[in-house]
Structures are given as C-alpha cells and as structure tokens.
C-alpha cells in the first residue's frame, strides 16, 4: 500500500494560515482529489490553524504550529499541533456556536466546519500543554 508523510513547522502568525492550507492541499493532490475535496481540506486546515494561533497561543511571541500529513491508500490524515494553553472542556469547545471570544466576532463554528468537511475529527488536549487536532478524509470516498 502506498504511504507518504510530511511535517511542517511554522510561526504561529495569522499570515501563515494561507501557507499552511496550500501546503496541505498540495500534499493531498497525489490522491487526485476533486476541487470540492481540496476546498474541504483547505477549509478544515484553516480552522485548525486559526484555533492554534488565536486560542492556543493567543498572540504569544515565538510560538510555533506543527502540521503533519500522512497518506495511506486513499486516506489522508492531517494533524495540527500547538504547545499552547490547551482546551479545558473539549466537548464544549466542539459544540456549534461555542466561542471563548464572543467580542472578537468569532463564529464558534470552527470545529463544526472541520467535522463537516473531513470524515473524522479527534481532539487531544491538555490544559497548559497544548492541543493536537487529527483529521482524516478518504479521497474519492
């Protein structure tokens, strides 16, 4: 079975969101995805990276986000990891419209979008240690 993997580490700056989602989309192209599948991957990655930057680190200087990608057969797995503040209540964070930043016009739809656009979503987090979001998608599935 065909296997491939990649890892990318970048500064937790909002200007790197576009860079991260384009890299994820480029990595997925070897599975010959449709335009819609590419949009779904890009959007899910953008949500996870946004969360890492604005919730995980909240503007902390020198912080980094790690993105890992794995391809196995027709499945792509993308992990977004930060070493930020972590999530106290993951179940609550995943609820549609929930946001800890209502004054900043956050929609609270980040995790909902990730769930809708990917086939599965796992969130591992520890307060004070950071968060890893794992998203899987079968291309052509």
């Amino acid at each position: 079975m065909f296997k491939n993997e990649m890892e990318l580490k970048f500064a937790a700056l909002s200007e790197n969101q576009a860079f991260a989602r384009v890299v994820a989309a480029a990595f997925a192209t070897r599975l010959n995805p449709t335009v819609a599948e590419i949009t779904e991957i890009k959007t899910a990655v953008s949500e996870a990276v946004t969360n890492a930057i604005i919730h995980g680190y909240d503007g902390l200087d020198g912080a980094a986000v790690i993105m890992r990608g794995y391809i196995k057969g027709r499945e792509i797995l993308i992990e977004i990891e930060d070493a930020g503040r972590g999530i106290e209540d993951i179940e609550q964070a995943r609820e549609p419209l929930f946001t800890t930043k209502p004054d900043e016009e956050r929609s609270g739809m980040g995790f909902t979008v990730m769930e809708e656009f990917m086939d599965s979503l796992e969130v591992e987090s520890e307060p004070g240690r950071g968060t890893i979001v794992k998203m899987r998608k079968i291309i052509g599935g």
Partner: peptide, 13 residues
C-alpha cells in the same frame, strides 16, 4: 476564492 469560519463571524458581526 476561499472563506473559512472567520468570514462567517465577520458577516454575522
């Protein structure tokens, strides 16, 4: 060409 939930927040705002 692309919009994530930050765009949703901006429009709802």
């Amino acid at each position: 060409s692309f919009m994530d939930s930050s765009g949703i927040g901006m429009v709802i705002g």
